[in-house]
Design a protein around this nucleic acid. Structure first.
Lengths: 261, 261
DNA sequence: ATCAAAACGTGCGATAATCGCACATTACTA
DNA sequence: TAGTAATGTGCGATTATCGCACGTTTTGAT
């Protein structure tokens, strides 16, 4: 489990904690109820270890037994909520996301970058526009989403290139950009124009536009986007239609987001 | 840490996992950045154990070091999201919550019961109506909220009485009901009328109305509410104004929510 | 209905990992 | 500058974790 050997850090690594967390992450949309063996297989643990983790989680109220199978309880939300509550960003962005969505009657979201994925931290949906539901905490690949590209573009170019090189670049649709050089060129363009439009690269029929959200120090800390259906707006029309609103939100939010330290 | 001695279960309890989870829960709105000692104190751990947990969380990407202090990373959302994604309820309720909020231009939420607290699992806010922000995963005492009372009322009366007796009943405002007998009487009333209105019991100026949401088997699995300001609607007017919409949502949702098993 | 295969719970000895004290070091404060 | 407090580190003792192996239960196919 420990990726590297950090001398001291290696001694202080608590294997049990790592295993338990990976057990929690075993559960998802397609795996609501899992058996001990299934968890062991998914988390790459021995059956005994998986069982001990599940028993512990059950004892602590994070999991419950349902006819021989385990399921997570709402108590698990306490963990994710520890982040939401400890980070002011979601609180600051959610009202504005709600407002924007109400004004334009389109889905609106905010996300941050975590490795090569974006993580939704605020969201307001008019109706479900994607086949998959995207609630808070949901993750999408950064390389093929408008918010992800805006966030990647805000990084040091070398760092951005590194993450793109390391990221799996699956072609979700025929339009998905997968070539490294194409992505780097797009990032360059995003840096210049200050926003990003994606045209059905994640799902056919889905278009979106995103802008970076900066803190008082000017550092990009999140991305804000509007997503809609290509049947209603062509990708080329998104900037003319929504960019003013997004830029206004960007400007309003900036003084509210204090830089750390 | 283990509450009881369950013979076998006791042997299979992984102390390290329990400690790590309690460390994560140390972080909240008022404690964004915590030192090793602070975490040790909050989680009731030895400094060494707290340090090992934090080091492990850092290694796994759940925490990061910021000038000698630790902070949670968005990766923690993966844990809470494991629940959201593995439970269909939030997905089913969120669109309807969004829709309802859009129609009536008031804040609308859904929650479930966890012990003596309600946990928000879907939410759409028009503007911030409470001084505290309530995102997904947020918790409030069940006894003094409209959704909490609806959910408590759905339990076996003995069980409800037990939870009320065990719950801390803090008076958030002068109007907060704290007497056990009053609460039991209210629950009785809620069972009869099928909804609950609360009038500034959690925060002055805040009124709300809630109805239970049932699955196909008729079992209450969540509560749906509308919250607004007493300056706009008197508590007595809430049912006349909003009950029809809430009941409609209740009826629409019921066939969508399958009973487990 | 019967049987095989798979999954589950349990016991236990060996091992390795956690534990927390004690010390050295580094901030922070008065 | 001295004193307080918090941090990182080393290490021996302890104990909790590990995973195999066994017996039992459930599943599912014939």
């Amino acid at each position: 489990m420990p990726p590297r050997n950090d001398a001291r850090t290696d001694r202080d690594f608590m294997a049990g904690l790592g295993k338990g967390l990976s057990v929690i992450e075993c559960f998802d949309e397609e795996n609501v109820l899992l058996s001990v063996s299934a968890v062991a297989a998914r988390a790459r643990l021995s059956r005994a270890a998986a069982r001990r983790c599940l028993l512990t989680l059950q004892r602590l109220g994070y999991a419950e037994l349902d006819g021989g199978l385990y399921r997570l309880t709402p108590r698990v939300l306490r963990l994710g909520f520890a982040y939401i509550a400890s980070n002011e960003l979601p609180d600051l962005l959610q009202p504005r996301v709600d407002q924007l969505s109400g004004e334009i009657h389109e889905s609106c979201s905010a996300s941050i970058l975590d490795g090569d994925e974006i993580v939704y931290i605020a969201r307001a949906a008019t109706k479900r526009i994607m086949t998959v539901a995207l609630g808070i905490g949901a993750r999408l690949p950064a390389t093929c989403t408008s918010m992800g590209r805006v966030l990647l573009a805000s990084l040091d170019p070398d760092e951005a290139a590194r993450r793109i090189a390391a990221a799996p670049r699956k072609a979700f649709t025929p339009r998905t950009m997968t070539r490294e050089e194409d992505l780097l060129r797009i990032l360059q363009q995003v840096r210049q124009q200050g926003y990003c439009v994606t045209d059905q690269e994640l799902e056919i029929g889905l278009v979106s536009i995103a802008v970076p959200i900066q803190n008082t120090a000017g550092k990009t800390v999140a991305a804000l986007n509007i997503g809609t259906q290509s049947a209603r707006f062509a990708a080329a029309d998104l900037s003319a239609r929504f960019l003013t609103k997004l830029k206004a939100a960007q400007k309003d939010l900036r003084p509210l987001i204090k830089s750390p330290g």
